[in-house]
Simulated assay, not measured.
Amino acid sequence: MFLAWNEIKKNKLRFLLITGVLMLVSYLVFFLSGLASGLENLNREAVDKWQGDGIVLTSESDKSMPQSSMTLDQLDDIEADNVAVLGQLNAIATSGDIKANVAIFGIEKDEFIMPDVTEGEAFNGENEVIASDSLKEEGFQIGDELELSSTDEKLTIVGFTEDARFNAAPVLYGEMATFHRVKFGEAAEQNDDQINGVVLRTNDLKSVTDNEDLETIEMEEFIQNLPGYTEQNLTLSFMIYFLFVISSVIVAIFLYVLTVQKISLFGVMKAQGISNGYLSRSVIAQTFILAAVGVAVGFGLTLLTGAFLPAAVPVSFDIPTMLLYGLVLIVVAILGAVFSVLTIVKIDPLKAIGG
């Protein structure tokens, strides 16, 4: 450690460049992890809010709620501790000059998926809805009358609730009758038994239903099948993994070049009786110091950047995940130093000093 630290102090600029590169790589890794976490939350917030164990959809729906069409009569075929009916459709909501893509949930007020109201009041009447508080950031307010792209019906916001986005769209919660009017228009009364799915709370999902037309899906599996959810997460994860490899390669190249430049010096040190083990430990310690400092600075810059980002940027920093990624970056940097260690071990003192 003594040798490693003294060399860093003597060649500040050279090692500052290595630390700077590691800092930029770690900054990008941390930011991508926050982006991945934020986009993941955008898709699943409303589903997590249900705190359900599973959901029942039709077998032909391919685990997609919009493609599932059930009737209330099919509730007789479902056995669970708690059930909550759900209707869902997507629309564009307009209030004045403000527009937003929204997901409309039809629910029953006395069932467990009814959201907590954080501002305003719960829906009590015809065409009243509770809206995701993310819509406030776009300019929507309590009392706004919403025009919808798919119907002549108009909805009124009477309250807001936290953490309510489904597949990246803010959710509007209304009573099931409101959902039927929006979806079926004048034919609402003839279709007042139509729903999209049934959310469950139960300890035994396997025995929920024997109806072959229905499929019971674990909640996490349902989330994984949301459009674009898995593909998005895999893309960002692969980007992070590639950055780990890039980080290792960068460190390996830098340290190898530095080692080659110091071959004669290492030869003299070995001729004086300094062991390969001591020199190798010095290189590893040097790499650890550089990587730790670079990762720590990148970590701090990421959190600082997050504090100034606008709410529209879907970033959510998960500290345990970031710490894990930081540890991985340090480890792969040390692995990248192995090439320099191997070079040092192979140095012949006599040849190195020109003997």
Rank of each mutant, 00 (worst) to 15 (best):
F179D: 00
E147D: 15
N211L: 05
A131E: 01
M114D: 08
R201I: 14
M219F: 11
V182K: 00
E231T: 01
G174Y: 04
I130L: 13
D193N: 15
G139D: 02
E215C: 04
A169W: 00
V117A: 07
K109Q: 10
T202Y: 10
E121L: 13
L135Y: 07
A164P: 02
K206N: 07
S134A: 13
T216L: 02
L148A: 09
V182H: 02
I157P: 14
E121V: 15
A131T: 04
F166M: 02
G159A: 11
K109C: 08
S149Q: 04
M114I: 01
N211R: 00
N196C: 07
G106I: 09
M114V: 02
I130F: 13
S149V: 03
L214R: 07
I217F: 08
D152T: 13
D116N: 06
G120V: 02
R181S: 13
G174A: 06
E221N: 12
F123K: 11
M219T: 09
E145M: 11
G143K: 12
V129R: 12
R165C: 13
P115M: 11
E153Q: 05
P227D: 10
M219N: 09
L214P: 03
S132M: 07
F222Q: 02
E111Y: 07
F184P: 10
S149G: 10
R165F: 10
V199P: 09
L200V: 06
F222K: 01
L148S: 10
E175S: 13
E218I: 06
F140L: 10
Q141C: 10
P170E: 05
A177S: 13
Q194I: 13
T156D: 00
D210F: 05
L135K: 08
F105R: 08
L172Q: 03
T178L: 02
F166H: 09
V198H: 01
S149N: 05
E145F: 11
M114Q: 12
A177D: 04
E215F: 05
G139I: 12
V171Y: 03
G143N: 05
D192K: 12
P115E: 07
T230M: 08
K183G: 03
T209S: 14
V117H: 06
T209L: 12
Q232I: 11
G159V: 04
I142H: 06
E108N: 15
Q232G: 15
K154E: 10
T161C: 15
G125S: 07
A188H: 01
P227Q: 00
T118Y: 04
E186R: 10
F222M: 06
N225I: 01
V117K: 08
N167G: 13
Q141S: 14
D144F: 03
E221C: 06
F222T: 02
N124F: 14
N225T: 03
I130G: 15
V171L: 03
N191T: 00
A164Y: 01
G197F: 05
E137Q: 14
D144L: 00
L148H: 04
K206M: 10
G228V: 01
E128P: 11
S134T: 15
E212G: 05
D192H: 08
I195E: 01
E153S: 12
N191R: 02
Q194A: 14
S132E: 08
E215V: 09
G125D: 09
H180N: 14
D133G: 14
A122M: 01
V158Y: 09
E175T: 13
P115I: 04
E231H: 00
F105H: 15
D210H: 01
D116I: 10
G185C: 09
G197K: 00
E137D: 15
G174D: 04
I113E: 04
E111I: 07
N225H: 06
S207M: 11
